[in-house]
Design a protein around this nucleic acid. Sequence first.
DNA 1: TAACGCCTACGGACCGGTAGGTAGAAGTCG
DNA 2: CGACTTCTACCTACCGGTCCGTAGGCGTTA
Lengths: 204, 204
Amino acid sequence: MVLPASSPTTREQILTVARARFSDHGFAGTSLNDIADEVGIRRPSLLHHFPSKDALYREVLIDAFADWADLVEQATTGPREGWRQVEQVLRAAFTFFEEHPDFVRLARREALEGGPMLEGELTALLRPLFDRGAAFLQREMDAGRLRTYDTRQLLLTGYGAVLSYFSDAPLIGGLLDDEPMSPASLAVRREHVIDVLRSALEVN
Amino acid sequence: MVLPASSPTTREQILTVARARFSDHGFAGTSLNDIADEVGIRRPSLLHHFPSKDALYREVLIDAFADWADLVEQATTGPREGWRQVEQVLRAAFTFFEEHPDFVRLARREALEGGPMLEGELTALLRPLFDRGAAFLQREMDAGRLRTYDTRQLLLTGYGAVLSYFSDAPLIGGLLDDEPMSPASLAVRREHVIDVLRSALEVN
DNA sequence: TAACGCCTACGGACCGGTAGGTAGAAGTCG
DNA sequence: CGACTTCTACCTACCGGTCCGTAGGCGTTA
């Protein structure tokens, strides 16, 4: 049975709402009633679709990280070299975070928690992406197209500089004068990060 | 009555334990029983010292951020100019985070949450530090001693690059092969961040 | 008829917080 | 000094509420 896009399954609705709630208030701060209420069903009905709160959270997390893996996969294919390729990935990542603010907060919470998911499936999913990124950077550095750094550290630096802006938007809103998630502010942020990293990475 | 340093007040013990618990598991993920048990008293006894869980959390948060404000105050005094002053602050911040991992996680959680504390007292405390940092950078850039960037964005970039490593240590441990919080790993991280930022900031 | 999706009702655990009592230290006063 | 009061820090017992999860029933649809 093919459902039209206009009528998502109850199960899909639960996943959508759960992702939003978990990303806003964390695992402990979200109750199954919160989720069920927003979907428009009772908690036992929700538990008809998912065996437990933990299982629901796991699925939310895996879905979210799979989305991210897809993007990285897609953004890292292409014949570009040196800084141009780095910039393409940065822009793609930035756009992804703009469009998936839930993912950012979810990932940050999980990184902070270091929960049981993290040491296992999640790192198994991220590790290849990380290693691939490091290998690419190493190749470009060896070829003299990028300035030389510790590649893994460099990945961590870029990831921190980009992700923190999104995950800490509430705090940053209090430090800047503008609304940090407005399109204008996001554009400023994007160009700044690219600018700084270009200065640090370009050879000439 | 002057208590010897070896016997902290019950109240102080509660604050110490609470800071650790809240930073590890967040506000919702920590129960007053957890804290009371570790101190070695019952929950009602804990509530004899603090009127509510919220009040305890507020005090933990304010104490932690006051520690941070003290460090920034101290690290930013001095006659240095240009990159040397930036590097001094970076090293001081890095050391502070090494010695206060609780603060990092607490701050990250609060930034993520955007709770009622954040929009108010916390930003009121951080805003002057942030503005002062931006003013310093602007002065140095105008004098030609640092490459020109948007100063506030630059502060956010540095903060994200440094803080993320500490707050996401569990995740990073799964991506790197070393123990991320070991002294050796921390030294590598510190020198890397300084290296990248120097490349981006130095003028010559 | 059988499966499915939802429901009401309930259980057992835990939550933050309150009421009220007790032991002991500290101060007060004849 | 000794008796009495006051205060502090802790306790046990309990409250109403919320948590996740289960049992079992009911209607619709295949």
